[in-house]
Design a protein around this nucleic acid. Structure first.
Lengths: 338, 338
DNA sequence: TCTGCTATTGTTACCGCTAACAGCCACTCG
DNA sequence: CGAGTGGCTGTTAGCGGTAACAATAGCAGA
């Protein structure tokens, strides 16, 4: 029975626990980490003392001494995107059993910001890094390459990874969607999407999309960009603008599901025949779509799986085969003629 | 001119930079942290050497030596909620200038998990902690109280904070909404919400709501719970269930905007007169609502402001006045009669 | 010339914990 | 009965930085 918190202003160290339980600091350390042999009675004594005192180990000191940090840096462009939380879920799922802990950093699609987030994270000497995208500043790439830890670049595989990459080919995804649209008989196709110069993946999808159109002798009949604001609302507005400007358009390809959903709601409200008179498609496969009056055509981005695979590489559970390509499935929903 | 990365397998330390630039480690440390006086030529030499080598300081060692950690722990129940990302935005905004860095931990509304997340975070000795909610296990509270750092509990102020609290009164919010609904002439009111036992805030809103109903001599005519799944879809399903079971219901109060939005879409699809025949209201004030065909009545939860104020307290920029209550505004939208 | 001061740089002693190894004891075995 | 063995606990020496203080140089003023 030790008196709890004798001096409330002093933060506890191993020494406090060791004194309270009458063993060496080393033994306390062993008990608390469950490492090495400690006799049952000693273990009990120590645990009780630690509990009574409310001791919380200092990982900073521990990490410095052991040269091991159980942190995995995760660098993503945004949290409000709805796509990254799911990646995080996949990462957490896999990391949960391993003693590794994800730490997120957000870049807001800013290259400078990404650089400083990466720098900051590396300065904590994590066990691995998961970074969204393949496009980074030279300095960022250099830091990652030099860090001496596993690096996994996720979401995209159209490019050269620093170390590992897990993702889908956005170029191919765009191409595939275009092919499906053409096959369904649509010909006057417009694109509606983000303008953010640093959303490289959206850009690649559009490239693939136009490539496939070109191969069929087609080209976009209209395009509309936006940035910021409520995606759903923007989707309505952009759709209205396109329909107004190019009344004979027969397909709207959106760069993401949120604006696609807005567009769908707008078209339905206008009483347009979807998918007869006009077809629509988005990208991502967000859960939200399930609740819409009609199911928007989309392509899931394998987010959960990307998170899982990336974490597995970091945790050393997977064969480090450079690039891992995943293949999104096209979900035609109810907004493409069949 | 130093040769870059002579030994690629050895991680760099201050000593490497100090040798490369011909000054002591201490001087390098001073340059890199911009602290103390260093002559301009020396500074240049050091910076160049550090850059050439690609040196990234080891914050673990730095933190241990200086007893200062520029991290702020943020513990939230979920990322996919759409409400917490906005809180994070507020936090980042304020922290950005201060050298402090937020680190998020997610609990999935699990008390055990919260406990271990808090423990894990405290073991990195952060400069402050921001934790969602006021309900925590005894162990969690004790750890936070003992940590000797500023603690801010956010979102809710109906209860006893460990240290500081910033949020709204969810009980009052529920009451207010009920009063507005009653004033608009609705009488047969149903509640549709989450069942998660640990969503204490939703529970408090419902309590306040029922309290106000009772004061007006009313009580809920129906209620419907859910958990998990696509919120939008669940909203549709639950709404269908209630309308089917209690056809003469004239108001649906949802515990959050997502299921409310689903309900709204359903009602509109059914051709119901909203808000004449039936009224609807949600909670949170999410951006999504702006894109809906009709604007759902809601109450914004002051999320951005909560994040800001909490961060200000941590950063020492605000007077630590125990509880800071914010007052949500009721946005009647188009789904309550006026 | 000597003192006193400022500007700059170096030295020393940790921060709190863990790896590696040393020590001690009881017990087994030939 | 001595050596060998395994179980448990303690000792020592850092990990890579930084605080605090010491040292040195350069220079002005008396």
């Amino acid at each position: 029975m030790t008196k709890p918190s004798p001096d409330p202003r002093h933060t506890l160290t191993l020494r406090d626990v060791s004194e309270a339980s009458g063993v060496s600091e080393m033994t306390v350390s062993r008990v608390l980490r469950n490492r090495g042999d400690v006799s049952a009675p000693t273990r009990e004594k120590v645990l009780e003392a630690a509990r009574a005192l409310g001791y919380v180990p200092n990982k900073i000191a521990g990490a410095l001494a052991s040269q091991r940090v159980n942190l995995v840096g995760v660098v993503i462009p945004s949290l409000s995107n709805m796509v990254f939380p799911e990646v995080m879920t996949g990462i957490s799922e896999v990391l949960d059993g391993t003693g590794l802990q994800p730490v997120v950093g957000v870049t807001n699609y800013l290259s400078d910001r990404e650089e400083s987030v990466i720098y900051e994270m590396l300065s904590w000497r994590p066990s691995g890094m998961i970074v969204a995208g393949l496009e980074h500043s030279a300095a960022s790439r250099a830091m990652l390459a030099r860090a001496g830890i596993p690096i996994v670049e996720i979401m995209d595989i159209d490019g050269d990874p620093v170390d590992h990459a897990v993702g889908i080919s956005h170029r191919r995804a765009g191409r595939q969607m275009a092919e499906a649209i053409i096959a369904a008989g649509y010909r006057r196709i417009a694109f509606l999407g983000t303008q953010m110069p640093n959303d490289f993946r959206a850009k690649k999808r559009l490239e693939g999309f136009e490539e496939a159109l070109a191969k069929a002798g087609l080209s976009l009949v209209d395009r509309e960009y936006y940035s910021g604001g409520s995606a759903l609302l923007k989707g309505r507005e952009m759709t209205a603008a396109v329909l107004n400007r190019t009344p004979d358009v027969d397909f709207l390809y959106y760069s993401n599901d949120m604006i696609g959903a807005g567009g769908l709601l707008y078209c339905l409200a206008q009483g347009l025949d979807v998918p007869g008179r006009i077809g629509l498609a988005g990208f991502n496969g967000v859960e939200l779509l399930d609740g819409l009056p009609r199911k928007l055509a989309t392509m899931d981005a394998c987010r959960l799986e990307i998170g899982r695979k990336a974490a597995e590489i970091i945790a050393g559970k997977a064969t480090p085969g450079e690039k891992i390509e995943l293949f999104p499935t096209l979900e035609p929903g109810d907004t493409i003629r069949r």
